[in-house]
């Protein structure tokens, strides 16, 4: 079935275009056959409806021979033949119609004869136009779908990335612990597995409650805590309203990973990462703040993580979400502001 017929709105739009085309056709027929107004309407209206229906069949023609699939000349040849068939059908219909109308308007059938070439030519041209528009429409649909697919696969790739260096360094810590503190080594194995399993599981989903992102973040920080010991200190302050916001998965975790890699890890004595979350009606604001060594090589501070988070926000929310970066003398602050897709807070 033609996709246009799936929606009433589209059918009405299509018919309104044909009203205009029908008026033009009626004018040309009236001139060619010297019809009066009543005769013109009586003959043009059914023909126009017939044409409108016939032209929908151009979809099948366009679909069976998309440009590029076979040579351009063969496409044109097929289009011409198909248009000839279409106009033959319409002309046959018009012939029967004229015969029938002859009863109401005497002599109409005879006067219809000079209008036949005009009608045939018009049908042929309109059908060709219809095939061409269908070709365009199919091409547009295809590129739209391709764009959607590529964006989707890109997002999937971005979400799936667990930093391999984080993994290798954690495994190295476990390896060190096995001899000095086997219980802690086992503990870290479990936490690392929890983190990996949850990040894979959450990464598959489109949205997760913010509470789940926070839980993932906690597991991640527990693993990093083993590596960095006293150097890594965390201060968390989240509104209770944040928890049931719906957010894309793994949005905050890469920011905290950056804060450790480009902040804490550059400092001999480490420092404190301050995490704050505020819910303001339908807006969620998350701030990640960390100290860093301003003398560390600049290349260390431009991470792939930020770019990926920004792209994902852009793809998902357009202009409605923002990622701001404020670089102070010794502190680095990332401010994330996005629409909260979850339930209304209970006491709003």
């Amino acid at each position: 079935m033609h996709p246009l017929l799936k929606s009433w709105k589209h059918v009405l739009q299509y018919l309104s275009v044909w009203t205009v085309l029908g008026a033009m056709l009626g004018f040309m027929l009236a001139v060619a056959g010297h019809f009066n107004l009543a005769e013109t309407v009586a003959i043009t209206a059914p023909i126009t409806i017939a044409l409108a229906v016939v032209c929908l069949s151009a979809w099948f023609v366009a679909r069976s021979s998309p440009p590029g699939s076979i040579s351009a000349w063969r496409v044109r040849f097929r289009m011409g033949i198909a248009a000839m068939f279409a106009s033959a059908v319409v002309l046959a219909f018009a012939h029967v119609l004229a015969k029938a109308l002859n009863v109401v308007f005497p002599g109409l059938e005879a006067r219809f004869l000079p209008a036949v070439p005009v009608l045939g030519g018009m049908c042929w041209l309109l059908y060709l136009l219809s095939i061409t528009l269908h070709h365009l429409w199919i091409a547009m649909e295809r590129s739209k779908r391709a764009e959607l697919l590529s964006r989707e696969s890109e997002l999937k790739a971005l979400k799936a990335q667990v930093n391999p260096h984080f993994l290798f360094n954690s495994l190295n810590s476990i390896s060190a612990l096995t001899s000095v503190d086997p219980a802690r080594a086992r503990d870290m194995c479990i936490r690392l597995s929890d983190f990996l399993r949850n990040s894979l599981r959450l990464g598959e989903r489109v949205s997760i409650p913010f509470a789940e992102e926070l839980a993932l973040l906690t597991t991640y920080l527990e693993v990093e805590q083993v590596r960095f010991g006293q150097r890594l200190r965390i201060a968390q302050d989240f509104d209770s309203g944040c928890a049931d916001c719906d957010v894309p998965p793994l949005l905050v975790q890469p920011l905290v990973e950056n804060a450790i890699k480009h902040g804490i890890a550059t400092l001999v004595d480490g420092g404190e990462i301050a995490l704050t979350g505020r819910r303001n009606g339908q807006n969620l604001r998350v701030v990640v703040e960390n100290p860093f060594d301003p003398d560390a090589p600049a290349t260390r501070r431009t991470g792939f993580g930020l770019v990926s988070v920004r792209n994902r926000l852009e793809a998902r929310y357009g202009g409605a979400a923002r990622l701001q970066i404020e670089v102070g003398d010794k502190t680095y602050r990332v401010i994330l502001s996005l629409p909260c897709g979850g339930k209304e807070p209970e006491h709003a």
Partner: peptide, 28 residues
């Protein structure tokens, strides 16, 4: 190495080498 556990494992491996003496560690 800036990570304690990373130094720890090197220390452990080095201790089993008879001709090696660890004379110091740095964290930066």
């Amino acid at each position: 190495d800036d990570e304690e556990l990373a130094r720890q494992i090197l220390r452990e491996y080095l201790n089993s080498e008879e001709d090696v003496q660890v004379i110091g560690e740095s964290t930066n």
